[in-house]
Write a protein that binds this DNA or RNA. Structure first.
Length: 412
DNA sequence: TCTGGGGTCCTTTTCCTT
DNA sequence: TCTGAAGGAAAAGGACCC
């Protein structure tokens, strides 16, 4: 029996109703609001080292954005550099273009596709706007990044009606009115299933999963559809002949633990059965703050010493600025390098005093740099600060200790 | 062929102390 | 003094996500 309307039940017996909301093609949709003339055309968002549309905007100053002629938009074929695609519209995907693909490869597949850089300020503004709408309606919200959230409908008034569909519709309408954007919502007894459900009816859809839908709707899906099974784990599962979630669910716990370890094996065993009791987390503190950059061309620690040194300093300054802007200090300072063969290494160092000072960060990060092989060519350099604490709580202690600004050491 | 940037979490290794 | 066990913290790497 299915009780889809739970009018009159007491709070203690309300079944969990968890929603996952995912904005539809968020980055591309935000651009289409500005440039409606691009609707239906192959559009790629990404790159961004150079603002490909700067010239466009400069050349048409005074003209409404919607009136800029199509012929003047930057095309994929004109791009030179190392970027990857953040997102592509369906029209672009028809050419075989997809997220995370190198832009140079995409340019070969569809040279005429329009290329726009990610406008993070605008994206963040839209993100705040749609989340504000949601919070007004369903305040138990877990932020899962720029374009998606989990919601706990269980105790929201009306959250149980039609299994959550009524509330979901209300949220969709509110977001559309406030931002002009559409989203897809999946509702299920837990986050795991809600996340899968939100993909069932895209775009602008609502999908509901009930406990007894597991075999019919979930088990035929590939294992990769489980949030947490990525390309590596999926390849390993395929080697074991486990292609679908149903096949995964057919394996005993000890077999999965044998192949994947206690933690991951146990988790997969539950996930394949649609079990997940993780809560909707409404508040979280950051664990680390970092900045990294991939160079236009591979650099060498000796031959490109000046350039690398300047980049390194800038990364430290950016991390320091980010820490200060967000009100944190940290005491684990680390670096990340990527060599020309794409091998990555990290080194870090935990110090006594928390800091958000650029010179201090550079000094400790410089110590880390001395512990890696700098004879090979580099393609990426990053700086990270972890073991964070709220700046305010430590401010007085730092002042009392008479913290001195560190001397910067010659590096590179 | 080509592979960004900013994160989190987990596992394994290493080092230190008792 | 040497050795080993055990446990914890830090370091390093890897997988995954948006």
């Amino acid at each position: 029996m299915r009780s889809r309307d739970n009018v009159g039940v007491t709070a203690a017996t309300l079944p969990r109703r968890i929603a996952h909301l995912d904005m539809d093609a968020f980055f591309a949709s935000v651009e289409l609001l500005r440039y409606p003339q691009l609707k239906g055309l192959p559009l790629v968002i990404g790159g961004g080292r150079r603002r490909a549309d700067d010239q466009l905007l400069a050349a048409h100053a005074g003209l409404a954005l919607a009136e800029i002629p199509l012929a003047d938009f930057p095309r994929l074929r004109d791009y030179a550099g190392r970027g990857v695609i953040t997102t592509a519209t369906y029209a672009a995907r028809q050419f075989g273009i997809g997220s995370a693909m190198g832009l140079m490869k995409a340019a070969r597949l569809c040279p005429d596709a329009i290329l726009l850089p990610v406008d993070f300020d605008e994206i963040r503004r839209c993100s705040r706007a749609f989340k504000a709408v949601i919070r007004d309606i369903a305040p138990v919200m877990e932020d899962r990044g720029i374009d998606e959230v989990y919601l706990d409908f269980t105790d929201v008034p009306g959250g149980q009606r039609e299994g959550g569909r009524v509330l979901a519709r209300l949220i969709q309408r509110g977001i559309l009115d406030a931002t002009g954007l559409t989203c897809s919502i999946g509702i299920a007894p837990n986050k795991l299933l809600a996340k899968m459900a939100s993909e069932f009816d895209k775009p602008n859809g609502i999908a509901i999963i009930w406990p007894d839908d597991l075999e019919r709707l979930i088990w035929p899906l590939p294992c990769r559809k489980i949030n947490g099974i990525g390309p590596r784990t999926d390849a390993k599962l395929q080697q074991l002949g486990l292609l679908t979630i149903g096949q995964l669910a057919s394996r005993p716990l000890d077999e999965l633990v044998w192949h994947f370890g206690r933690s991951q094996g146990g988790w997969m065993f539950d996930a394949a059965r649609g079990r997940d009791d993780s809560p909707v987390v409404t508040h979280s503190e950051p664990v680390s703050i970092s900045r990294e950059t991939t160079f236009e061309r591979d650099l060498h620690a000796v031959h490109d010493k000046a350039e690398l040194g300047a980049l390194f300093t800038r990364l430290c300054e950016q991390v320091a600025a980010d820490l200060k802007a967000k009100g944190y200090v940290g005491r684990t300072i680390g670096i990340k390098l990527r060599y020309d063969d794409f091998q990555s290494v990290t080194r870090d160092l935990t110090v006594e005093q928390h800091t958000a000072d650029a010179r201090e960060i550079r000094r400790h990060a410089g110590q880390c740099l001395k512990r890696v092989d700098l004879t090979r060519r580099l393609r990426l350099l990053g700086v990270r600060v972890g073991t964070l604490a709220r700046a305010g709580k430590l401010a007085s202690a730092a002042a009392a200790s008479g913290l001195k600004a560190g001397r910067s050491l010659p590096l590179f």
